[in-house]
Design a protein around this nucleic acid. Structure first.
Lengths: 229, 229
DNA sequence: CGTGAGTTTGATTCGAATCAATGGAAGTGG
DNA sequence: CCACTTCCATTGATTCGAATCAAACTCACG
């Protein structure tokens, strides 16, 4: 299947790819696969051998882990334009998480060995890749922080402000996924999530829409969160 | 100051260094600094510009973060032979954690820019470095898992078994640090830590010594933990 | 319209944190 | 060598945040 020009632009500028020069990029894309995946279907499963890297060209993908009892913990929600499962190719090469589409999505699969070949051939590409990995690690460190040092309300506030920053500082934040998914991403139960939103509404910090949240008092939210490093 | 031959071997085989060939290694060591640090003194502070990578040649170092209220969360405890603060050089380059010695220690500081220079010059070195970073990321992912999906008893059991595996499957595990440090590493309060140890003792799974824990029933401990991926 | 997934609300439980006190073990100094 | 302080670990009582259980409610969809 083919990508729209818009999607091609997204892929070309994804962090995973942008450091490539045009010839390498073209070679990479010749081997790339494009998949349409329906809502709820798997892109890959935890433990599968990692043969491809993926870029989400449209839609969105949740990465998560499962306990044997079936509880799921959503690690991250990948929006279009972002890549995932990088940094997997280096070790034994199994995906460390499950990936399923949250809505009908289009994803581009990059051949792992070929990608690694390019990396091996250019330390410049490597350095850019390492920068990417390093950023991810910092993010994970912060995540551990948030999980251990802070409570549920704090995590939610921090999440809202992150979305706020990402969305060009518009006070109206569109929730990319159903609330229970966001909740899991924040390691909060849906009931608790709901209660916290209510409390924040009551103290006039936010207004809760159906699939959106409006920030009414960014200042105060920030002061809530700024109480961290 | 000088390193004993033993320490030199430790450094030479640390994951950060081992992929270097001898000439590069020697150049690196010419610029390396060696510090003796007393118990409780800082190697670096969170937010400091990251100019060096460090390898712990002797003793042990705790990496941790602080909340403004002064709570500390220990991210990791670095034993001799291991490196830390890698993967920091790539971004803006500030240390993302504090590092202080848990006991009198000897650490080797590698010049960051020089190290990066070697990386830039060899994609082979890069690939090995990326492997290292990838492993760290997996570890962090597992950490997030443990923190969200599992309770305190589970985390402690998992920790004991990890030490068991690292220590060549000796059932007697030496605690590298005071218990309250281990507790923080596991995101457990000292009181709770103590209670869990007691409960595990009472169910004959472990015997608690002064600075050590003996595993009495590895089987059952593992079955406790094996209930995860 | 139902039907069912997703969300909200309320009552209750539970794990772990907190508060408070005690009990060593390790140093320190007279 | 023995008080004396101090740090660390343990134990008990209590509190608190969030999970769980249970029930209503809402709204998109066939």
């Amino acid at each position: 299947m083919k990508l729209t020009p818009e999607m091609q632009g997204l892929v070309r500028h994804s962090p995973l790819i942008q450091a490539f020069d045009d010839p390498s990029y073209n070679l990479l894309m010749e081997n790339a696969s494009v998949h349409k995946v329906g809502e709820g279907s798997y892109v890959f499963r935890q433990g599968d051998p990692a043969e491809e890297l993926f870029i989400c060209a449209e839609g969105c993908i949740k990465l998560f882990r499962l306990t044997p009892n079936g509880d799921e913990k959503i690690i991250d929600i990948i929006q279009h334009g972002n890549s995932f499962a990088e940094a997997v190719l280096f070790m034994g090469g199994r995906y460390p998480v499950h990936a399923v589409a949250l809505k009908p999505s289009v994803i581009v699969g990059i051949d792992g060995p070929q990608y690694m070949g390019f990396l091996r051939g250019s330390s410049e590409l490597c350095v850019s890749m390492m920068g990417l990995m390093s950023r991810r690690m910092h993010w994970l460190l912060n995540e551990v922080d948030r999980l251990t040092l802070h409570n549920a309300t704090f995590r939610l506030a921090a999440y809202l402000l992150e979305m706020y920053a990402r969305g060009g500082h518009s006070t109206c934040i569109n929730l990319a996924a159903p609330k229970h998914v966001i909740a899991s991403r924040l390691s909060i139960k849906p009931e608790t999530f709901s209660r916290i939103l209510k409390r924040l509404s009551e103290s006039k910090l936010i207004r809760v829409g159906d699939h959106s949240v409006e920030l009414l008092n960014v200042e105060e939210l920030e002061s809530l969160v700024r109480v961290e490093l």
